[in-house]
Each structure stands twice: as structure tokens, then as C-alpha cells.
Design a binder for these strands. Structure first.
Lengths: 340, 340
DNA sequence: CGGCTTTCTGGGAGCGTTCACACACTAAGC
DNA sequence: GCTTAGTGTGTGAACGCTCCCAGAAAGCCG
């Protein structure tokens, strides 16, 4: 109150109409790019808007249209992962870019703890946003369930099995994981293990499936370790565990670059050379990959494009366009560097 | 339209009032926690809300109150830095946490290019947000100017010299830079250089000032290189440049951990050992610091708390409370590890 | 018991839009 | 000259809330 009071009253559509000598209906039509506005009116209104310094009052517009012109980006990760995961930032930027092109606002909803879930579900129910982009949902994620229940237009980045009918954009985790594993095998490795993570998510379980595909008969369940998070720490622990199980291991597929980075640190400590003694490949092509010594061979996933594409899809849904395909798969690319 | 149409009509305050047999005025008072609501009315309304599944319509409320219950987080960085800079993510999380506690929404506004500036200024003028937290503003930042001009309550993270009167929360960059430099000198270094960055920001110029303070007479302008961004790349270039200027350099203060990480990679390439041949210290205590070999001695800055505190301050401003102090300085901490 | 204060309630007005409808004008077709 | 279709414009009625005022009811005092 104290702060709003001393700001000058904002110009309304009435002021513009009066200044331009037309009715507010005409101004509204012109503002919304509707047809049936004469050139003379258009011109007068443009001048009037500039003169009185008019900007639309969003609250009024939202109230009248029953829409909010805002899209939620729901990130379901503990804070530590939010900071460490390079993909999330890129997805955020991609989504934000696309939405601002369409004059929509991005509202970040970060679910750090389960306590947040209920609050956020309420928020989504409240009509604050017209749609949502959901990042890194788990299988049977309560938020995902809430959204389908509310009937809010939503697009997943990734494709949880528990919500098969929801629109999504993703990558072919299984295929890409198979490909990079085959690259590793092609360097002549005989005993290859995997540091898996986040098996409660499609990305995690699919990457494991791809690894299994590539190994075929050679697949040995004993050479797979898995962790809840794609973190460097897990990579450290995972590598230690693998070496205990098989000292003669000569290849590792880490389900993310961060895992791989942790694994490489362990190998260095133990005096094992990369790629000499052990070949290692990762997934993501994040900056972790470039910071490793040697640099990491990995799968490039276009995180920013995933964000853009998800935003585009949710905008289509909001505008009543049903996408022809329920999901879109973006291409990945193998990046061969020094680590295998 | 297609999507909103098939969702059931949401309950309004009228429905609640009818169900509870009171007037909508009473419901509104109760909802806003105002006094003068009888216990019997309160109870009836609570039941009615649960029964009809009422949630407030924010647009209507915003229109009536002329507030938006949203705060903007303005980040002025190119996309690459947004992803690489560990502080920004932590500030975002801190701000988001504090705001959701107060039932405010965070709206992210990312200024990647100058083209965005005008659009964002318009947005701020539009009454979409009640206030703003501004991260990494440059000196004479057009957005900062726009905000003071609009009269929007805003708090800076950091303290640009060009906006001395604006509320801010920050750290003592100069003091902390001096302290960490003195730690470096205490290891017996004779020829110490600095890789500076972002001198167009208070953080950058203050850290340089602190370095100069610590060196006193020994300060040699020739041993300072500076770059626009706190990036690993700049660290690489900076270290190369310093070694060219003085092959016998035995100490480096890098203005951020990312710079330090780049510098260390160059040293390793050149066959120089850390901390044996060259001691190196950084700033931030981000995960870069832990990923270095050896781990980096650095200054811990409480980025998440900066975000929280900025959020608290902007909420105070929005509610008409003028903070007793124009700025708040949060403590930093020296983290000594293996690099110096 | 009359006046005064305090507590509580109802409902009109207004916030700034959009939407739907009614109406005015023009041009074309027969 | 009368219809008909196509353009362009103005206006009342929402949208769902908060604010504020008037007034009822209840409690207190002398």
C-alpha cells in the first residue's frame, strides 16, 4: 500500500480510448490483433498508447479471459541436484526462451522436499498457470498424478512409464546408451561394467536397458551398480564398488558425466590410467565432460532444445491444438574424446 | 478455450458464502485473516470451503488489490554463464524458498541479450510483479536504471556503485579477497598475480581492490589480467597470459573458482605443480573447488543465504517497511584446502 | 433505561479487461 | 431500390475478488 500509493496511477484502456477518440472495445480489438479495426483507428490508438504510456493490466485480462499467460516449470529434484545437474539449467533456459517469444511467463516451481508437493498441487489447482512443463518426474510422481487429475495441459521432459499417455519430449535413452556402450566395446574392452543411477526414472532405467542391449550375452548383472542420483559422489562410490567386484574391469559406462567424473577420480587415485587400463564413457555432454582428464567420450543430449520443444508443445495444448504425435524424440549425438 | 472449457467451473467466493450461509464479505474477511469474524461463521466457512473445493482466484484478487503477489528475479548474464555460474542457481533456490514461505511467486527474468532489456523493462512497468531481486547487475545497468525510474521495490544481490542508494545484500568482496590473498602470501610466495574478471561489476572490481590491498607495495599492475566473464575459459587464457609475462610466477589469486580451475589445467599442461611450483586460490567455494586436483583453497560465499536475504528485504519493501540499513553484508569464510 | 463503544455482518461499488451483441455504414448483386 | 454480405464501432455485462460504509447486535457505564 505504502509503495503502490506513491506510484502514479497507471493508464487504462479507457484513457487510451478517450485520447484516441474511439471506444474501449476498439482499443481492445486492436490490442488483441483482431480484424475489423480501421487503419485510421489503429493509427490513432497507437499514438494514444505511446502518449499515455499504456501497458495492459494483466490481472484484469487474466480475470476476463480465465487464463494466466503463465506456464509452470516443475522441477522435482533436491536442491543439491538442481545445482549440480547441468541439464536442468539448460532446459530452464530453453523453456524460458520459447515462452517469452510467445509472451508467456515462466513460473519456476521447485519441489525440493515432499512437503512441497501438496503446496504445489494446490498452486496448480488455483489457476495460476495455464500449463506446465515437468522435468525429471519419477515414476508414480504425485505431482504428475495431481496434474492429470486436475486436467492441466502438461508436457513431460522425459517419458515416465507411469504416465504413458501424457505428451512428452525426450531422447532415445536406450538407443543412445546402447550406441555409446558399443563404442566402448569397439575399443576392445573385455570386462565392462555400468554405474547406473535414478532407476526410478525413465532416463535411468532406459540407459541401463541400452547397456544390456549392447552387451548381449556378455551382460553380467554383478557388474552393474546403481544409485538414486546422477551425482559425482555416486560415481565415486560406484567405481569403488565395481573395482571391488572385479579388479580386472577394463570398461565403464556411467549413466551421466557427473558419475563418470567421480569414477575417473577414483581410477586416478588407484593409479589406473584412462583410457589405458580402463575405458570410460558418460552421458549428457555437460561441462563435466570437458573438465575431465582426459576429456570424456559421451552422448550429447540437446537439453536446451528439449526445453524449447516442451514449451512449444505445452503452448499448443493450451491453445487447444492436439499434437499429432503424443511424444517427440530429439536426436542425440555421440561425442568421442579421449576417455575411451 | 478448448482446454478450459472441459474443466469444471471453479467454485467462487459466492459458492462458499451460499454454502456457509454468510455473505461473501465475511468469507473474504476470513480468508484474509482479518478480525471481526465470529467463531461460528469461521467454522461454517471452513466447512464450506472444504466442501465446494474452493481456491482463491488470484487474477481477481490481484485486480482488486492492485498487487500481483509475485517477485521477479532478474538475472543479467549470457546463457553460458547462467549455466556455468554456481552462485546463480543457489541464489535462485534461496530466493524461491523464502518467497514461497511468504506465499509469493518467483518469476524468472533472464536477460541474455541487450534485445531482452527493453522487453523486460516493459514487463516490469506492467505491474506483473510487486518487486524484484536483481542478480549480477553491471554498473550503469539499463535495467537497474529502469527500475529506479519505475519506482519498483527492488533489492540488489551485490552493490553496484552506480546505484548506491538502492537496497542490497552482499558480501565484503574486498575484505575477503584481501584475506584469501594474504593466506596465499603466507605460504611464502614471492611473485603473485591475479586473474580478475567482471570489472564492470562490483564483485569483480572489489576483489581486485582487495588483492591490491593485500599486496601493498608489492602490487604489480603487470601481473593482473582481466576478462569479462568468470568462466573457466577465461581462467585458461588468463593463466597463459600471466606465465608469458612472468615465467617465475609462484602464486595466483583467481577471482572465481571457475577461473582457478582453468588456470590449474594450464599449469598441469605446462608441467608446473600445484601447490609446489605455483600456489593458487579462488573465490566462491563452488563445486569447481572440490573438483580440482588438488582441491582449491577459496572463499566460501553463502549464495543461498544471499538469495534468501534479498527475498526477505524485498518483501519488507513491498509491505511498506523501510529496512533500517540500506544494505546487509553477509559473512564469508576462508576454506583452506590443498592448492595453496 | 438511554447512550456509547465494540464486535460482527451484508451488500454496493469498483478494479481493468474481454466478450457478445446490436447497430451503422459501405459495396455489390439482382 | 431493395436485399445481402462484409466491415467497422460502441456498449452492457461479466470475470471474482477486496474495500468500505451502513447498520445490527451485544456489552458496558452511569
Amino acid at each position: 500500500m505504502a509503495t503502490t500509493g506513491d506510484r502514479p496511477r497507471r493508464a487504462t484502456i479507457f484513457d487510451v480510448a478517450a485520447e484516441a477518440n474511439v471506444s474501449r472495445g476498439t482499443v481492445s480489438r486492436m490490442l488483441n490483433g483482431e480484424p475489423y479495426v480501421s487503419d485510421s483507428a489503429r493509427e490513432a490508438i497507437e499514438k494514444a498508447i505511446a502518449k499515455v504510456g499504456y501497458v495492459r493490466n494483466m490481472a484484469a485480462r487474466n480475470l476476463a479471459t480465465q487464463r494466466s499467460k503463465a506456464i509452470a516449470l516443475i522441477v522435482h529434484e533436491p536442491h543439491s541436484v538442481f545445482l549440480e545437474d547441468p541439464n536442468i539449467g539448460a532446459i530452464l533456459l530453453g523453456t524460458n526462451d520459447r515462452l517469452s517469444e510467445a509472451d508467456y511467463q515462466l513460473v519456476c516451481l521447485i519441489i525440493g522436499s515432499d512437503r512441497d508437493s501438496a503446496r504445489i498441487a494446490d498452486y496448480l489447482r488455483g489457476g495460476f498457470v495455464d500449463g506446465a512443463v515437468i522435468v525429471s518426474a519419477r515414476e508414480h510422481d504425485p505431482i504428475a498424478d495431481a496434474i492429470t487429475h486436475i486436467g492441466l495441459p502438461a508436457v513431460f521432459v522425459g517419458h515416465p512409464m507411469s504416465a504413458p499417455d501424457m505428451p512428452y519430449v525426450g531422447i532415445d535413452n536406450r538407443g543412445a546408451a546402447g550406441d555409446i556402450t558399443r563404442e566402448l566395446l569397439a575399443t576392445g574392452r573385455k570386462k565392462v561394467g555400468m554405474i547406473a543411477a535414478a532407476l526410478d526414472r525413465d532416463s535411468g532405467s532406459e540407459r541401463l536397458a541400452g547397456f544390456r542391449d549392447a552387451l548381449g550375452d556378455q551382460f553380467d548383472e554383478n557388474l552393474v551398480v546403481d544409485f538414486p542420483l546422477y551425482s559425482r559422489d555416486s560415481g565415486v562410490q560406484g567405481m569403488k564398488a565395481l573395482l571391488e567386484r572385479a579388479g580386472d574391469l577394463d570398461g565403464v559406462f556411467a549413466a551421466s558425466d557427473a558419475l563418470a567424473a567421480g569414477a575417473m577420480d577414483v581410477l586416478r587415485e588407484k593409479g589406473l590410467s584412462v583410457p589405458g587400463d580402463v575405458g570410460i564413457v558418460g552421458f549428457d555432454d555437460s561441462d563435466w565432460a570437458l573438465r575431465c582428464q582426459p576429456q570424456l567420450s559421451t552422448v550429447r543430449q540437446p537439453a536446451d532444445l528439449l526445453g524449447r520443444e516442451a514449451a512449444s508443445m505445452v503452448l499448443e495444448l493450451v491453445n487447444g491444438i492436439t499434437p499429432e504425435t503424443p511424444g517427440r524424440i530429439l536426436p542425440t549425438e555421440i561425442k568421442l574424446r579421449g576417455s575411451a
